[in-house]
């Protein structure tokens, strides 16, 4: 097993009833890269994330993380290996202040293991993490109940919860959806900073323009199959990708 691949996926298939969501997919995620996964609605992107993080068990195929087989591992164990994810639909503790929302990730088994139970003052750590994702320091916003936060901050909170787990790989499922251009522009530097720290990032995205600016590599899915991969220019030049997005003329 080469050590520069953090994830290796072999012939992964998932069938839901009669629908094949992912079909014989082969792919690798290199350590330290930012991989963008795109594809039309229903092309199997989120299913792929759910498979990688153990939320859905594959029909067949194999997933390796750092050479270790995680194909049928339970979701709560996969996170221990350093794979964190965000959800498309944010689900914070609505009644708690934003920084108090970080208590569960900061008390999680993964963080305890990584930092040996010594994490200092958790409220301070929570505020630091929130600042890292763009909650203004010394502003009231971090103390507001999550239920009163606008969508942009809720997405940042979701990102902060994933970062809090000290993961190696962060999978962002449509982080940009529902955000304005300005909000996306302010989150992009946060993602770039994570990469500088050596984190591997996978982004599922429909906002192609913004994604292409930061991604090293793009993988395109359609009907559960990989139809193209490479740099943004390469995949957009592909006939198959054009057909998938625009429909083919036959």
């Amino acid at each position: 097993m080469s050590t520069d691949n953090i994830i290796e996926i072999h012939k992964l298939t998932k069938v839901f009833g009669g629908v094949t969501a992912v079909f014989e997919l082969d792919c690798t995620i290199k350590r330290g890269e930012l991989l963008g996964i795109i594809g039309p609605n229903g092309s199997g992107k989120t299913t792929l994330v759910n498979l990688m993080t153990g939320f859905v068990k594959p029909t067949s195929g194999k997933i390796l993380c750092n050479g270790k087989n995680i194909t049928r591992m339970a979701a709560h164990k996969i996170i221990q290996l350093g794979i964190a994810r965000t959800f498309q639909m944010v689900r914070p503790f609505y009644q708690l202040p934003a920084f108090k929302n970080m208590i569960i990730p900061l008390y999680s088994p993964r963080v305890k293991q990584m930092l040996g139970g010594r994490y200092g003052d958790r409220d301070a750590v929570a505020l630091d993490l929130l600042e890292e994702v763009g909650f203004e320091r010394d502003a009231y916003v971090a103390y507001k109940p999550a239920g009163a936060l606008p969508q942009g901050y809720l997405k940042r909170l979701e990102l902060a919860k994933a970062i809090a787990l000290q993961p190696e790989l962060i999978i962002l499922d449509e982080l940009f959806s529902g955000l304005s251009l300005a909000e996306v522009a302010s989150i992009v530097p946060i993602i770039e900073k994570l990469r500088q720290k050596g984190k591997t990032i996978v982004m599922i995205e429909h906002r192609l323009k913004e994604l292409f600016r930061i991604a090293d590599r793009i993988m395109v899915l359609n009907f559960g199959c990989k139809i193209a991969q490479g740099t943004a220019e390469e995949v957009m030049a592909s006939e198959e990708v054009k057909n998938a997005y625009l429909g083919s003329e036959r």
């Binding site: 979701a75 996170i79 221990q80 569960i104 919860k161 994933a162």
Partner: peptide, 19 residues
Amino acid sequence: LAFRGIAQDERTALTFGID
């Protein structure tokens, strides 16, 4: 806390490593 986490959202609890 884990109890409250799962009460909030089971899937989120799983991503935090809670069984």
